[in-house]
């Protein structure tokens, strides 16, 4: 505990409001913070075999009551603006083939149930690992003969969230074996690679130090089960790769491109680190 307190003090030392946070962290359990992780009132999922984590915790439990309330209520959750757009696009005919998503996949609730929980996946035709955004754009370019949506466009975000939402509550369930194995290994290497001027790896924050404060921010396990996510900071829905870019920039490293092989590989490794956590898409985070 002493060690932890020192780390917190260092981490929040430059912030005026930091002292109060440090004090309340070490004080009696009677003072509830409202943050489930700190109050010891959170759900865990058993970590998959070989995981460095003792238990899996959704980022939901690291957030304040106000942020969680936005996620809990489908009406208050602003991500549903994009979700509704996704629903409309599902049956919108586009492209040379004169088809919509619904032309092939019909009822989204039936056809997409569980799909979002299983991506990224190995794509045989290209011999590469692809994520859900890329799968959607492949449908557009190949089946619909339509233009691919731009990364981080409202359309691609809306459709990705809409498809993944059909797996809400289902456990994350990616395959890391067979043809996916080499991509998984690359993703793992990325995760532990120190980078940037701050010389930090993903693991520095999200494996070794989750539950501690980095300045005024409570570090989570960096789980991906809620993406695409409405972030208060962004004031809009955003992709996991946008979050990766933000993380990389925070450690003063040059970020990779959205949809790059590096990030898709990392996405698979990260999904496995949360294997079994319920899909929360679209989640709300700070």
């Amino acid at each position: 505990m002493t060690f932890k307190t020192i780390a917190i003090a260092l981490a929040v030392g430059s912030l005026a409001g930091g002292a109060a946070l440090v004090a309340s962290y070490g004080s009696s359990a009677a003072d509830k913070s409202g943050i489930p992780y700190r109050d010891g009132e959170y759900e865990t999922v058993e970590a998959p075999e070989g995981s460095p984590l003792s238990e899996l915790i959704s980022g939901y439990y690291f957030r304040t009551p106000e942020t969680r309330e936005l996620q809990d209520d489908d009406f208050m959750n602003p991500a549903f603006i994009w979700m509704e757009q996704g629903a409309e696009l599902w049956s919108t005919v586009e492209g040379e083939a004169g088809e919509s998503c619904a032309s092939c996949h019909e009822d989204v609730e039936a056809s997409m149930k569980g799909v979002g929980a299983s991506y990224p996946k190995y794509h045989e035709a290209s011999g590469k690992l692809i994520n859900l955004e890329q799968r959607i754009n492949l449908c557009r370019t190949e089946s619909m003969q339509a233009e691919p949506w731009k990364w981080e466009s409202d359309e691609l975000l809306g459709m990705t969230a809409y498809v993944r939402h059909q797996s809400k509550g289902m456990p994350v369930n990616v395959s890391i074996e067979g043809p996916a194995a080499p991509f998984f290994e690359k993703g793992k290497d990325f995760y532990y690679q120190r980078r940037g001027q701050l010389d930090m790896a993903c693991a520095t924050c999200h494996e070794v130090n989750y539950g501690m404060y980095i300045r005024a921010d409570l570090l989570s396990q960096g789980q991906s089960n809620g993406f695409p996510t409405y972030r208060l900071k962004w004031q809009k829905l955003g992709s996991l790769h946008r979050r990766f870019r933000g993380c990389n920039r925070q450690v003063r490293a040059v970020p990779y491109a959205n949809g790059s092989d590096e990030y898709v590989n990392l996405e698979l490794y990260l999904a496995w680190r949360g294997q079994g956590l319920p899909v929360e898409t679209p989640a709300v985070r700070q």
Partner: peptide
């Protein structure tokens, strides 16, 4: 974007 400024109402 065509769907910009789309209202949602719960009443």
């Amino acid at each position: 974007m065509a769907k910009k400024h789309k209202p949602r109402v719960k009443a």
